[in-house]
Design a protein around this nucleic acid. Sequence first.
DNA 1: CCAATTCATAACTGTGTAGTTATGTATTTT
DNA 2: AAAATACATAACTACACAGTTATGAATTGG
Lengths: 107, 107
Amino acid sequence: MQHMADTVLKSLADPTRRAIFESLNRDGEQTVWMLTDQAGVSQPAVSKHLGVLKSAGLVRDRREGRQTHYSADPKGLKPLLDWASQMTGFWQKKFDALEDLLNRMDQ
Amino acid sequence: MQHMADTVLKSLADPTRRAIFESLNRDGEQTVWMLTDQAGVSQPAVSKHLGVLKSAGLVRDRREGRQTHYSADPKGLKPLLDWASQMTGFWQKKFDALEDLLNRMDQ
DNA sequence: CCAATTCATAACTGTGTAGTTATGTATTTT
DNA sequence: AAAATACATAACTACACAGTTATGAATTGG
């Protein structure tokens, strides 16, 4: 559990990588080429970032022909929310609401 | 707002620094010496970590004589929560849109 | 079948930063 | 006043990693 929070936090700490994750959340499934067009870095850099995000459970990939479609996995943020909710009970209600949403996505 | 999420995420990405923050949340206010005793790194390293956490708004300090007491600031996690809820909010909107579409198809 | 496309991997480089030791600055104690 | 305590800052080192170019592997098009 703590290990997952570690990998998730490290993945999201990088601005470029977080921007990719935000784009996938905001605009939905996209190919590597589409993401490279926005990222401002080279295609290998984007592929590497996507590999890190995938290892952290934040994105999924779907190969179709010669292109790979990536999409954000909403459940990937759960370890982060679990960790944050452990830190303090102050925001407990908000976290519970988010977790509720994530649980409904499970189905 | 995004800048705050960036500094908070970068602060919490380091394991040693996150452990210090967790200890402050779990056990409450502590001096630098107490934190150094647990951290497994030198006192200057701990002071540096505390400085980073303070800059990110995650901890507060209170000087008393020759020792400095640090405590976790629960509001410091708010930028992280806001960012996460924005990410999940995108999914909420997609579900709402899907539900809308399904409803319109019913007719 | 050859060329172009799409992505991943390899090899390398530069830089940010977490760690160290050494030292400075108050504050308390004897 | 001198010594000891508690913390911060400075200067430096080592390493993780984000970036690059070059290349490989798989798929599609002419």
